[in-house]
Design a protein around this nucleic acid. Sequence first.
RNA 1: GCCCGGGUGGCGGAAUUGGCAGACGCGACGGACUUAAGAUCCGUUACUCGCAAGAGUGUGUGGGUUCGACUCCCACCCCGGGCACCA
Length: 769
Amino acid sequence: MKYNHHKVEKKWQKIWEKDKPWQVNDKSKKKKYYSLIEFPYPSGLGLHVGHVRSSTAMDIISRKRRMEGYNVLYPIGWDAFGLPTENYAIKTGISPQEATKQNTANFRKQLKALGFSFDWDREIDTTDPKYYKWTQWLFLQFFKNGLAYKDSVAINWCAACSTGLANEEVVGGNCDRCGSEVERKLKSQWMLRITAYADKLLDGLANVDFLDEIKAQQQNWIGRSDGRLIKFPIVSSKLELDIFTTRPDTIDGATYMVLAPEHPFISELKIKNKKEVERYIKKTQKKSDRERQENKVKTGVELKGVKVTNPYNNKKIPVWVSDYVLVGYGTGAIMAVPAHDERDREFAEKFKLPIEDRPLVTKKREWPGKSQVNYKLKDWVFSRQRYWGEPIPIINCSSCGFVPVPEKDLPLKLPKVDSYRPRPDGQSPLASITKWVEVKCPSCKGKARRETDTMPNWAGSSWYFLRYTDPKNDREFADQKKLKYLMPVDWYNGGMEHVTLHLLYSRFWNIFLHDIGLVPYSEPYQKRTAHGMILGEGGEKMAKSKGNVVNPDDIIEKFGADALRLYEMFMGPFDEAIPWDDQGVVGTSRFVNRIYDIGMKVAQHQSKASVDKELEKLLHQTIKKVSQDIELMRFNTAISTMMIFIKEVEKHNSRTVISQKLFSDFLKLLFPFAPHLSQELWQAIGNEDLLDFKDWPKWKEKLTVEERFDLVLQVNGKLRGTVTVKKGLSKKEATKLAHGHKVVKGYLEDQKPKKVIFVPDRLINFIIY
RNA sequence: GCCCGGGUGGCGGAAUUGGCAGACGCGACGGACUUAAGAUCCGUUACUCGCAAGAGUGUGUGGGUUCGACUCCCACCCCGGGCACCA
């Protein structure tokens, strides 16, 4: 009988929906295991095959853990605030609330069709006021602890649309919507003081199990460097120019100074060629920081009439302005040492500045200035002038300053608006709702105005893993006991594209909340891995505009959820980017059908077949390999190992049917990958219960070891033959075998080898040059 | 430009971490079954020469270390991810 994936998958999904085998008892005495995927942004495009990849991987881990006896929390939710939904609202007039409802309904249906073992009773949605009440409450904790403040920040500004733009909306320096040139404009923004946590974010990495490249990305992003702050007095002025350098030892070779175009001194200094300098600065303002760093010809202008004194050798040296120096890093000014720094040298060569290779100042006490630690990390711009985000719960009172919205008034709900478009003055659409904006100051009861900025999308995703432990709590963001039992996340998998920002931001929130006693553990994630992207067929990123988006629904319809799950795990190494191949699912779909055929035969014969020793041995090797590969996320080789096993079973099938005992163990191995098929066959061979809580099979090491191996015969390092022999063969015996080998013999005749290399149980190599 | 990955048959990839390069899958070719198509099953499949035994070449490019290099070292080229208002 042919396998009907439609019928079988629906059948078990219904049973799972009813029985809720994955519902977590958060008061259990069992050891817990918390596995987490990055919750999806429910876009209108529907589930991406990339979501399927990550969710399947953690589903496999979660299912294996349940079989190993853990109380597993594998939750799901929606990271639903964000630009695409807002832009859709602007375009169509459909409210983001409505669009989100539709999109999450679609995602929910799609995820359920894949049989993921989520605890659906813990579903969360960042745009649900019951959820963002606590996002707002947490923001107020930052505010009350002095970590949220307002500051002036440069943003991308499109004068034509009179809107602030995300970097993504700036294409080649122009506005993505109207094409006009984008300017940089200073705007007052809410900031989170993440820099205060730079060292804690670095130190915390020592205690967690993250992939090395992920740790490296975090460390480099924080970018701690230890150096010196040195003052260069400006000639005939009271001003002193502060610079930060990690190479104070090169100070004798500093032949000029460079200021960033935004450096405050430029307006204060007496510059002879002021007009020229201003023209230059105006030109650089159009460039983004990244454009400035690009490997182009360096530009700059000398500040004529300005000199500084090198405090080490008292030489008077010139001062330049150039955009290769960034205002946001260090002091926004550098001492240029062209003999030691490549960028300085390029600049010096272009402008014919002296390059002096002087000896290093190796005595630390001779260095001027004082030691200082510097970070690349900048504070986090936390406000957006947009509609679709959590309203920042602050009231601005002319006499009391910034006053938090009282806790009893949370959640501060997003009001209904007529237009989702930011206002011509650049303020969020919320600013137009006068009734909402004009409020009494909670502290002095005088006239006051609400903050109209909203939070960035990152806000909701910075603490969602905490909410999963207690998603329905309306008195606290989460119950302490539940946090204590279920946190930290034991294994967090997500995209490599999220390992700097989201990972850093959410660690920051958690560490801060730990510091003020609100969460029990400092680091939120015990282990973090990352998967590669699934690209379109041809290796390009999947995008609607390219027409190469693969819809999982179509694949499920044609081949079934199990075949899709297996294919996505089989297609290549989990941590690398991989192009989609429609044909690939054919292979795993055949695999599913062949297993079904075998299962049906086993069901017919019931337990009559006896255990085949050869198959038993291969099974134990398979159990070992699959068990180990899952832990290393080498799902592709785990599946190929199971394919080899099935091939062997089919070979044996021509003589005898595989015993029920062996087949049962195989089904347990397959279950995390293809749960519908495995559960169906489990029932077909006479079991009533769910596979979810059966014991994960153990292998007998003795049965996994081979007694024989292929001895490789080499002459001068070149392969000339192999012989299958018993393990533990001596060098003497190997030499004898080689001399008896019909090909190798010819090379060894009349020659005494200069050297013989023997690697036990592997090879023998004769060097006869 | 800076940080993190990667480059192996027609394609996706495997290789016990220095020891038989190409497991497994797709595709292609040949065969069986079928009136036929599809499905399924069996066989072949890195390239070159050879009927064969076998020989030579081969893991982005160039160099190096080693008895032996996809694996280690140096230089370079190309591709992917991130670069702070995408999520």
